[in-house]
Nucleic acid binder design. Structure first.
Lengths: 199, 199, 199, 199
DNA sequence: GATGAATGAGAGTTCATTCAT
DNA sequence: AATGAATGAACTCTCATTCAT
């Protein structure tokens, strides 16, 4: 089974957002000061404010960028795969694992800084997260309906699988013992067992 | 299969730590000020310092309390269960799910505030977390060695299972659609499939 | 005619408000930084915030203190005077002149920083200012009704008289050529002519 | 007595100064940022600096323009009037009232932002203000010397009358209950009473 | 055992101003 | 003539922490 592990071509961030992203990963949103973001980006503080209205704005831009990127990649992966449930499942799990392995920083922030978002942005973010979860829910439901998957608890299994993929962002290192391809292969095997995929 | 879902008897926290815990869950360590902890605990700020050396101290106490509680409960659950791999696995997964369902706040902090710990405390915390992970690793390895579990990737499966249990702390509500017993039942089913437990 | 020019016993301000008041007079509200208030009061910046919620709060306290003091003194002066229109008029003008001569700083701020007040405080302040103006309006109306005052334009005369008294705060110096008694005497003469008081 | 209430033909301000003037009236000099002036004038910030050296420069230009306009109008009004004291007094008071009614913004700034001027500009401004006051002083002194005015305190009366005229800028509205002509008429009556003009 | 008062340091943000283009 | 981008300094305000009482 040939799996495309080409690094996902995430549209690049501005140097400022890149700096903010690194800081948020390392210290968290509230643990990061505007001053260290500016220093990391090689600008003065007002130089930074020339481009972004506030620290909160940077966080919102980062979160939106991460979630829409993941969603788009997921849609693309599903569209490119065969339409049978197992192929769809493989495509989606592969996409999730790759995203969280290759794009660790945005992926990490996307679920660790939800509470740091202002109310409205938080609502929007959660809506995006739920839409992302629904992609997996639907693929699994389709597989169960087709008799391809045998899990008795599709909803919980769906959540469990998304969670295990998401958590890759917390520990995976490209220079660690597992190549990206190996990582994806193993997670596909595990995920298929979790839902009781045939074969 | 009778599963004990008695709320785990976690040794109670001081009112101050209880207040700090709630704040850390809602706003994060860096997003929480000493003043709001004091207010929540019904004390003055110096009153709080009379009991705890610093905000960092509170975090360390909370993290240690959470991790040692979980570890002790895990040991107890394993000791109380039959010694065959499946029983041990069931006991450990059940313990994890229950802990993260009943003790959401400490469980949530235990993995969301790692980076907020001072260096030494962080090292200790990570050591505890790894020890906790090793419990699952060992149970799964034993099952695989005994031919009871069929997963080809025990290490990754172990991590995946711990992760799915841990994530319960993020969404489970006692007043939601699933009773604790149902929750544990379903996660046991899913986890056993994930490792390919026999039967 | 014996006029009591005892310095009005304005309830004293806290050292912080005293400092803020001086700064606001010299530099204006927006031209005054919290730091210079703190320095003038002999405190650190947070020391100042321990007592007052914000710079705006200091301004509001000062404005309210000034306006209520003036109003109370006006009421007292009117109550202590004979009830005939001229006596009432003399009492009120004398009170106004004395207040703006002795309490130059609060008096000056009370009309120079209205636009610096937050919306609600501004509404309240204007209500107090209007109530103060109404005291003069009523005294003059009574004198006109009684045939004691002959001005054909009581409303405008009332405003003009209050204004001329108010403006004393802008130039009068206790160590200047006019003693307070002389000042009051002259303004009484002028004000009585303005409304065409009999005799 | 025919009073000319033609709106005083103040030489027009540049759009930038016009914008600055409005801002200074609404927020004060220190409460106004260069950015909001630029926005109001429909220019970029550097575009604004192309025309004016600094915010202080704008203020100085505005203040000088206001004071010289008022002085020139006063001279013109005095020159156009008959030479007897009452006619001169009427002309000057009428001019003052009209200026402060028609040119509220410059008039308001001219006395509310004195302390915001740099030292040298402040000295010049105060000299202009004193010269303006002297016009009134002289007219009143002449009337007293001629036995036309009976005030025993010409200096204070002069200040009081200028103040009452000046304060028109703070409250008069062209769309309010008083037409400009009525306003001028009433203030003339009041002012003449204040100095005890004959007849 | 508890608190009102205080503080140095630093938070996010905006200031007036300049410069390369 | 005009602007996007940049900056040092300063803004209001809050931080974690301490100390005299």
């Amino acid at each position: 089974m040939a799996i495309d592990t080409t690094p996902s071509a995430l549209t690049p961030l501005s140097p400022i957002l890149e700096a903010a992203q690194e800081c948020f990963v390392e210290q968290g949103y509230h643990g990061t000061s505007i001053r260290v973001i500016a220093a990391r980006a090689g600008l003065s503080v007002p130089g930074l404010y020339h481009h972004y209205r506030s620290k909160q704005q940077m966080l919102q831009d980062l979160m939106k960028h991460a979630m829409t990127s993941l969603y788009r990649q997921s849609e693309d992966a599903l569209a490119a795969a065969a339409s049978d449930p197992l192929a769809q499942f493989n495509a989606l799990v592969g996409c999730l694992v790759r995203f969280h392995a290759f794009e660790r920083a945005p992926a990490f922030i996307a679920y660790s800084e939800i509470r740091s978002l202002d109310e409205e942005a938080r609502r929007e973010h959660i809506a995006r997260r739920d839409a992302q979860q629904r992609l997996m829910d639907q693929v699994i439901e389709a597989g169960v309906a087709a008799g391809e998957f045998s899990t008795p608890h599709p909803t919980e299994a769906s959540r469990a699988i998304v969670t295990m993929c998401t958590s890759v962002a917390q520990w995976y290192r490209m220079d660690g013992p597992l190549t990206p391809d190996e990582l994806v292969d193993r997670y596909l095997v595990i995920a298929r067992m979790t839902i009781g995929a045939r074969g």
